[in-house]
Design a binder for these strands. Sequence first.
RNA 1: GGGAGCGUGGUGGAACUGGUAUACACGCUGGCCUUAGGAGCCAGUGCCUUGCGCAUGGGGGUUCGAAUCCCCCCGCUCCCACCA
Length: 831
Amino acid sequence: MSNSPERYDPAAVESRWQQRWEDDRVFEVSEDPDREKYYLLEMFPYPSGRIHMGHVRNYSIGDVAARIKRMSGFNVLHPMGWDAFGMPAENAAIANNTHPAKWTYENIDYMTQQLKQLGFSYDWTREFATCDPSYYRWEQLVFLQMWEKGLVYRKRSLVNWCEDCQTVLANEQVVNGLCWRCNNEPEQKRLDGYFFKITDYAEELLEWIDKLDGWPERVLTMQRNWIGKSYGAEIHFPILERGGVIKVFTTRADTLFGASFMSLAPEHPLALELSQGSEQEQPVKDFIDRVRRQSLADRADEKLKEGVFTGAYCENPMTGLKMPVYVANFVLMDYGTGAVMAVPTHDQRDFEFATEYGLPLLEVIVGPEGPVGAENMPEAFVDYGTLVNSGKYDGMDSKEGMRAIAAELEERGLGSETVNYRLRDWGISRQRYWGAPIPMVHCDQCGLVPVKESDLPVELPLDATLPETGGSPLPGLDEWVNTSCPSCGEGAKRETDTMDTFVESSWYFDRYACPDYDQGPLDPERTDYWMAVDQYIGGIEHAVLHLLYSRFYTKVLRDLGQLKVDEPFINMLTQGMVIKDGAKMSKSKGNVVDPNDMVERYGADTVRLFMLFAAPPEKDLEWSDQGVEGASRFLQRLWRLGLAVADEAQGVEAYAGGAQLAGPLAQLHAKTHDTIKRVTADAVNAMQYNTAIARVMELVNAISLAQQDESLAGDKNREAVLREAVEAAVILISPMAPHIADELWRRLGHGNYLIDQPWPAYDESALVKDEKLVVVQVGGKVRSKLTMAADADDAALEAAALSDEKVQKFIDGKAIKKVIVVQGKLVNIVV
RNA sequence: GGGAGCGUGGUGGAACUGGUAUACACGCUGGCCUUAGGAGCCAGUGCCUUGCGCAUGGGGGUUCGAAUCCCCCCGCUCCCACCA
């Protein structure tokens, strides 16, 4: 190759094209009923301060998909914005003596520049931050509408409370049982809070999982498990003497005849109540206090089954057995009813508990080998089987027995078949400052009153000073808190809780369709056009939280008449993590590679190309400095080749058929079209960008060889075929490395942006070759390869294979049993 | 304990509905060019006992033919986890 006079200078080329794209508003889109829309979205970032490699990977993958769809003729919506409320802003504000808003908006400015330097094809006119009142005012409106429909309620529940920080901690913020900020041990506290009734949608959320066939099975499984639907029965156990019943949920109503005691969760209201006035009152109190003092993590780790007798008894509705009621540490208040009918013979936990406390064991289910006797059981028999010691149900199969027993209970008014969900309502209250205020007012006369819609937004006051102690300043802001009651007009106080930031991220994708709409949350016309998101891309860590909340919120908006879609995301790609030295990049591990450094050193195209090439999108990606070098080398190679061909083929049109090609030029032409075909299959249809890039590399290798092939000098088709091949390579790599591609495209004499260039079609006839390679196997092992005329039939292949010299060696003197010929490409001789 | 997934050269990874295992790249080796090179070019690179050889974690099976399908085992990762 001739020495290229011009070295590739990524910094100059990239900023030049970024400027042109911006000046010409290349990525701005609007609704166009005549074109098919495609909505591509990556999970928006939290403005933490700097873009990290995980962002770069996420947005590089998305950008390739967006650019390809655009080139394929779709009207592509590809927006970007900021998930801007949240605790880090509060902590940073305290640490740096600044205000969360200032910190957040400064970060947004900086990160916006970073994203622009990476050359992503966003329509920046749609950008917004969720901390802007023009965004959260509509969230408050939806909140009020949900309140009206009964989809929001307020209740008292147990939360993790850090006394030092004066705030509630989310479960994720309790690290190793300690507060993540001050390392104090949080305590359990009862607190009032608002809840979204996601459980009302449990069934629909579950049903739709089966229809989300563009989602990874892994995510769907996690959501299914999270919703946790199980079929069973609710059974009422009458409480002796006191009256009333204890309700339990069980999936094993067939074991009811074996229930010999009752276990209550320590938080169960009956736990204290039943022991009141008895000599067990104090021991029960002590036990509950002790268990409650354990952090949630410790309690989950506790393997020892412990409990205490309440002094009360209930009655087994089938056997009439007097069952002692215990409080037990392994019973969860938030699953089922918080009470468990204990069947020690057929549940391992109950078995351990009964053994410890000397409670009766009754064998009621037997396996094929028949009864073993409860006293002989080394552990619980938990399989299904045949009922024994179960009155008229003796001899019945377990599954039949469950239904029959539930039916009898229902008849007697003591229970029924039922369905239980693990899913719990979504607690959205945060005792935090940097969030969207919950638009409610507390009035001494009227109680809890929603703010009038006309008074929205309830703006978060920005003149607050965050207390050093970490609590929210809102309750102390008298002039903000004190208001008048929307109902009676008397003095009242504002709600000082703010909303969980997951509420903002549950509908931001809708708002991108109409970010400037001021008549309501969503412009029906524009959301109808753009929604749902055709392809969503983000980390697996949101498999349940954000992706489940968004699905729920979409259905709520639909039921409020704000939206017409049932599901927000048609296709979902969960990209893998960026790993270095075997661990996820993180400050604490000290293995962070800063994107800025890499972009400065190699350019954005190189960084993007490396991240796309080094692993398939859904798998984890191991960072490799040498791999980045490799990507850089490839682009430099493409650059030199592109310039050389632009020079040599100046004024020559790209080969477009017609003239007969032979030898290496015919091969290069075929390779060009084969590459288009395969890159289309990998990148357009499968998002397999790693293999798509490998194909382009192969093509570039082939072009390089042909360009240096002296035997082609003087061939009248040389320049035309080289141009065709180089232009194909440039177009095909442009979604991954858009800057260098546009620059080369310009230098090859074109005036348009590659994003406006139609995705190339391949010519099937160019792929037809005169010859084909036939693999010859003997007994399934490859023994020879034959080059045959393309039109040779199976009989000819067989004959040629049998007479092949190398094959002869292996079949010599052996009887040929069978010859298998596979569609003109393989012959297998069985001896 | 329950669920999901994975295991291919020195490394990241290819291999379409079973049909040339190891594409592409990194690394390494040798050579060329160069004042120099984190530059470029060329050649080589699964393993070995070099052959009817062996090889996709191990073992078995189905098949003319298995990385791919089935069974058992080993190892790793992720999610949920005392779920009644």
